[in-house]
Amino acid sequence: MSNKFNSSSLTEYCKSYARKVAGEFFAHHTVISGQELLKLSAVSQVNLFVISSLSEKWRSDAERFRSPYFDFEHPDVRQAMQVFMNTVSQHISVRRDHLEPLLAEATRRTLVLLFDPRYYFDDILRNQSDFSLSAETAHQLTRYTQINKFVPAAIEERMKGKSSVYVNQALNWLDEILMQRGRELEKPDKYIPLFSEKVLLDPAVLLRKASYEHVPQPTVFTPNKSFFDTDIETTVPPVPLAAPSSNGFEPVVNLAPPDSESSVRPLFLDDSGPAAEPAAPSMQPSQMPTHTSDVSTLEVSPKTEEPAGPVTIGETFYRAPIESISKSISLNQKFMFINQLFNGSAASYNEAIEQLDHATSYEQAHDLVTNRYSAQYSWDMNSDEVGMLVEILKRRFA
């Protein structure tokens, strides 16, 4: 949870808002349709987040139809599944007891997006499975974001057709976007009256004191399309909704052409190349000058010309190639890595070492260290522990 909020106050407000909005609608209705959901709240972002939740459930339900006993990749089956799921999506029908939790969660997400956008996007990125951001996920994030939409749109643009990127890279882009375009972030002021129409929204109650001091005071039915592909009429440019997952059947995409305000241009330069390798701790002992009985005749050679000296048996062992990372790590090193690099989690350590052991090259293993684990576990790349692990990787792929 964002530390800007008073957690209990935020939870209570979201429940109260959802109860009020749902109560007014269901006083005259038994269920709510997709078209009615789009107009339920005066804050369009809340409605979008509700639709987003339904879209995720719709996509997961589609996957449940898959079975090892039938050919779901056959063209006839794929087509039939697409028509069926699209038709189902056009007949959304939600009862109050199912809607209120979705509405409360959508309200919470909207308030966090408004008052702490940096935390909102950072939290989404860090919670991606396998610590990687797929192109499909980035696209869905842009689809369902209306407030501060330029942030996910710029991340999606930055991916430039890549199927996925490490979350560490996406987080770097997020920092750059907010640094360069932070002034474009929407102010909460214009949304506070919209929320207050139903339940009074007082930032002084919702936010912690230190945070509050910094806060500035109809869809057309098309049978052959999914409801989640239709455009939404709001006070901002239309936002296209989700398409069926390509894993289950062919997606149907109907993206509205961007206007001058929502068009996104590349913001950053291309990658300059792989990250520089962290400096590994030296295994070479310091060379001391050889003293003679006649101190006056001692000659001190320049440091750059200092002889390396003989290599000891211990150094030869520690530089020798190894076949397995896990087997080459001593018990003391293992405990040190678990405690210092993996937050005390032996399971996380074992999973990471197994993935590193299955890497096909030093570059691939080093990429996992610098672009995945370092961000996932907040490593200091100049620490002795990371340097020791990198040294083991060098021996593994020597």
Rank of each mutant, 00 (worst) to 15 (best):
S272H: 03
E233F: 15
V94C: 10
E233C: 11
Q90W: 04
K4T: 01
E250L: 15
S286L: 13
R372V: 12
G34P: 00
P193S: 05
A62P: 12
I322A: 08
Q284C: 02
S132V: 14
P238H: 03
Y17F: 15
F5E: 02
K187R: 14
G34D: 04
V112W: 03
T304L: 14
P266I: 05
D380N: 14
L185P: 09
P302C: 03
S211H: 12
Q287N: 06
M381W: 00
T230S: 13
V220I: 14
N339W: 05
G344L: 06
G314M: 14
P302K: 07
Y191Q: 03
A153M: 04
R208C: 07
A42W: 06
K327C: 06
H366R: 12
Y349P: 08
E299A: 10
Y17S: 04
M336H: 07
A106H: 02
P203I: 11
R396T: 02
N350C: 00
M1Q: 07
Q180N: 13
S245L: 08
T142K: 13
F49I: 00
E213Y: 00
S361N: 03
Q146P: 00
P152F: 09
H214K: 14
V167M: 05
S282M: 05
M381F: 02
K209D: 13
F70A: 15
S134R: 04
S301F: 10
V239W: 01
M159W: 08
R96E: 15
A106V: 01
F335Y: 14
S60A: 12
K187M: 08
S301K: 10
S93R: 11
T235W: 12
S41F: 04
E213H: 02
Y318R: 13
F5I: 04
P203F: 12
R66D: 06
